[in-house]
Every structure is written in C-alpha cells, then in structure tokens.
Amino acid sequence: MKRTKTILRIVCALLLFAGAFLLIQRLLTPKYVDGIVEGAFVAEYYREKKDHDVIFIGDCEVYENFSPAVLWRDYGINSYIRGSAEQYIFQSYYLLEDTFRYEKPDVVVFNVQSLQFGEAQSEAYNRMTLEGMRWSPAKVESILASMTEGEHFIEYLFPLLRYHDRWSSLEKTDFQYLFQTRTVTHNGYYMRVDVKPVESLPAVKPRGDYSFSDRAWSYLDKIVSLCQKEGVELLLIKAPSVYPHWYDQWDEQVKTYAEKKGVRYINMLEHTEEIGLDYTADTYDAGLHMNLSGAEKCAAWLGRILAEDYHLADRRGEEALAAEWDEKRAAYEAEIQEQKEKYGMA
C-alpha cells in the first residue's frame, strides 16, 4: 500500500514537472513572428500539404529571391522554399533528407552560396534553422554537424535550457503566440516590397585561398547522391545578389564540379539582363537580397527553365490545388498591400 502510494506520488510529481516544463519552455522559446522572423521558416513547411514539384533549398538567397506564387501563377508549378538565414550546406543536406521523408519533388533547386562555409559560424543562425525541424534522425545529425563551441545537444532537446534567461525580456508576442502561431512566409518566400537601390559597392577583397573546404564539398556530394538515390533532378544555382561578392574562382570550381557530376548549374548573375533585374529597383537592401519585384522576376525567369527543360506539368487545372493557391495568392496580395502601406508605397 505504502509502495503504491509512493509510486503514485512520483508519477504525480513527474506529470506536474513535465507539464510545467513544456509550458514554460514554450513561453520562453522565441516565437519569431515579429522582428526577426527567419527562425519561423523551417517549421512552416510541416503545415503544408506536401505535394510540391520543386523544392528550393538554401539560405537567404533562395527565401528572398524567388516567389513560388509567381511560379504557380505563370507556370502552374507548385513549389516550396526550405531555407533560412545563413543556412549552412550541411543543414541544407539534412533538411533535404527531412523533406524526402514527406515527399519526392521532381526538382530540387540548391543555391551554392553556402559552399563558402565548411563550419557553422553562429549559434543564432543554427538555432533558426534547426529548431524548426521536426525531430528525426536528420535533425539529430544536423544538430551534431552544426554545433559551434559552447553549444550543447541537450539545449536543442530542451530549448528551455538555452532560452531560460529570456524571462526578463519576454514580449507580448510570447504570450500571444504561446499556443498558436501565424505563417510569416508564402511557401517559404519571405516578402519585402520596399526598395533600397544599389548605389555603391564595397571593393572586392581578394582572398588568399579561393578553395571551398573539403567538408563543404563532401556535403554537396551528399546532396547530389541523395537526389540521385531518390530519383530527383538537382539544379544548382547561384541566385542573384551583388554583395557579398561571388568570386569567379568560386564559380569556376562549381562549374567544373557540376560538369564532373553531370548536374546542371546556372549562375544567375550571368543572366541579369535576361532576367530583367534592375538593381536600382529590385533590391530592398542595396543588393544583398531581392525585393518582391526582383523575386518575381527571378521566379518568372527560372520558372520557364523549370517548365521547359524539366518538363514540369502545368497544374493549374487541378481543382483542389488551384483552390489552395487561390487562398495563398489572396494572402500574398494582401501582404503586398499591407507592406506597401507600411513602406509608404501605396
């Protein structure tokens, strides 16, 4: 009897602790719905119906430079961007593994910008990519591959241990989005409508060594192999941006690699005119990333390649999918209006 009572008490204690732990952890973990929203991108994918033709994988140069809404509008391509801020190549690989758990798109578009980093540079960026992933072997491996000095796996497992000191900086949104969240992207695309033209560029700094690290190459190998294994076409791109500089020496290496592996590589910087990019109007941060206008131009240009060269079917005739996109388009247009008002462009 006494033993039963003790066990019952232990169970009560554990339940109380676990419940309180989960609640407090949820409260203290950043919500990424205002201000820095990049940490919300990866998790949003899981709320999607997973039936995409094209998956974009990469860093800010994919989630800001391509508009899936335009790919749908112009070509009937159902696409999604799985990218987050400074997403490192190893994280992209594991995110791709994670994606293949849910769906097999026809084409994966990978932006090669992240080849320049063989190791994670910042915990903050790690967190923004990794925390949104659902738990799976891919997530575990991605964490292990990404952790910088001083990071602990257990703090990914229980984010409360990492974010406990947010107690003094909690905001209204932490309570508002305690049990719910809101979507901040449009199929992974992060919209900005404002304009900050390129006026001057910092001088290009020559580097002592232009080679990418072995680790970065090994993960690109893994991406290639994984796509081959899954029977998915891989398209390597260098998305347009004028800064940070994409060196010719880097480009040559990627071209050589792509040829060797039999993978298509497009450096969009070489097609600026064809795309119709105008860096005085198509960027919101002086050339680092595209704004809405730039992203729509890039999507329209790449969409033609995807439709024609990869023979992706126009799915606008699929009733359910079209209805879904109608809703998405409405939200897309609404945010355009909202942002235009916000930036005084209405």
Binding site: R9, C12, A13, L16, F17, A20, F21, I24, L28, E123, G150, E155, L160, L161, R162, H164, D165, W167
Partner: peptide
C-alpha cells in the same frame, strides 16, 4: 502535506532552471 511539498519543490526546480545563471553568456 504532500501537495504543498510537491509544489514547493517543483517551484524551486523551476527557479533554478529559469533564473539560474548558466549557459551562453
């Protein structure tokens, strides 16, 4: 009483977990 003890102990545990000066920084 058990309930009071339980609440106090869990409270102390969370005080340590939340307000403890540990981790990055």
């Amino acid at each position: 009483p058990f309930a009071l003890r339980l609440v106090l102990v869990v409270l102390l545990l969370f005080v340590v977990l939340i307000f403890g000066a540990y981790g990055r920084g």
